[in-house]
């Protein structure tokens, strides 16, 4: 019990160091996470079934209005939070863990495997990722899992590179050398020394990748390559923008604006949060600030 309390205190200490912007971002994210968890009970209307006339303006019980099928927009946005966060965090964790592991391996083993991995990373880095994403998404077919896999496949390189350079630096530290001479196994070193040392950087990366993944998923859905049954924010935007002449009607003022707003707020919050974490966790930056 006291262990948990200790952890909480530690986290609180980190948060206390945040700027106002960082704190606001955190609150925003917590709200969206709550929204995602309680999605179906936050709205009286269903997220996947008509509950009013087509394209009703906000008001009349429909807090944010309805879309072209008469489906409540607030309900859709609440439910969309679930999809978008699932994709965001799913991709980020997959990419950060995968990338982190590859980075540790590459940095610690060195030699030919390191060279091969570095060249692969170079190649993936220079390939413009969005066109490739579109291609892969179109090839693999629209499903939530495919979107996560495609996004993860293209985002593991950054954490891998950062972790690798950290590990290469750590490897030369005397305490590691000492541990090695005392017969510590590779696994022991990775678990005991390397992972704890790179974890803060990975955490920052996870948050940054989450934002990127949410935007990418929205982009794919916007292009009609997402999962048509997933009802993510990007999909709402996709349907709104494919409505003929939407900018010449009033409909965009709710149908397009609100999903866009929430998407922007979440992505911005994630960006601020990752910057805050970077500042708090990197002692060099902390001194400068």
């Amino acid at each position: 019990m006291s262990k948990i309390k200790n952890k909480m205190l530690k986290i609180w200490k980190v948060i206390k160091d945040f700027s106002i912007l960082g704190k606001l971002s955190l609150v925003m994210l917590v709200l969206v996470i709550l929204m995602a968890i309680f999605a179906t009970s936050l709205s009286v209307y269903p997220y996947d079934f008509s509950s009013g006339d087509a394209l009703m303006a906000p008001g009349n019980g429909h807090f944010l209005g309805t879309d072209d099928l008469g489906i409540d927009l607030w309900a859709q946005i609440c439910y969309g939070a679930r999809i978008s966060l699932l994709i965001g965090f799913g991709t980020a964790i997959l990419a950060a863990l995968g990338g982190g592991m590859i980075g540790v391996f590459s940095g610690y083993v060195g030699g030919v495997p390191d060279k091969i991995i570095m060249r692969i990373i170079d190649i993936i880095m220079v390939i413009p990722d969005f066109p490739l994403m579109v291609l892969l998404a179109a090839l693999l077919g629209p499903s939530l899992l495919n979107v996560v896999i495609v996004l993860a496949l293209l985002s593991w390189v950054t954490p891998a590179r950062i972790v690798r350079s950290q590990v290469m630096m750590l490897k030369e530290q005397t305490y590691i050398k000492v541990a090695e001479t005392y017969g510590a196994s590779n696994w022991y070193l990775i678990w005991r020394h390397f992972l704890p040392a790179v974890f803060p950087i990975l955490a920052v990366n996870i948050i940054r990748l989450t934002g990127r993944a949410i935007v990418s998923e929205a982009g794919l859905s916007f292009l009609g390559l997402g999962d048509p049954t997933s009802k993510s924010w990007g999909l709402i935007i996709h349907y709104a923008t494919s409505f003929p002449g939407i900018y010449y009607t009033n409909f965009w003022k709710w149908w397009l604006l609100y999903p866009w707003l929430i998407l922007t707020l979440v992505v911005m919050s994630l960006a601020f949060l990752s910057r805050e974490l970077e500042r708090v966790m990197d002692p060099r930056l902390r001194i400068r600030a």
Binding site: L55, P244, G245, Y248, T249, F251
Partner: peptide, 9 residues
């Protein structure tokens, strides 16, 4: 061809 939504315009 237009939709009825922009007819007013």
């Amino acid at each position: 061809s237009i939709t009825p939504d922009v007819l007013d315009r």
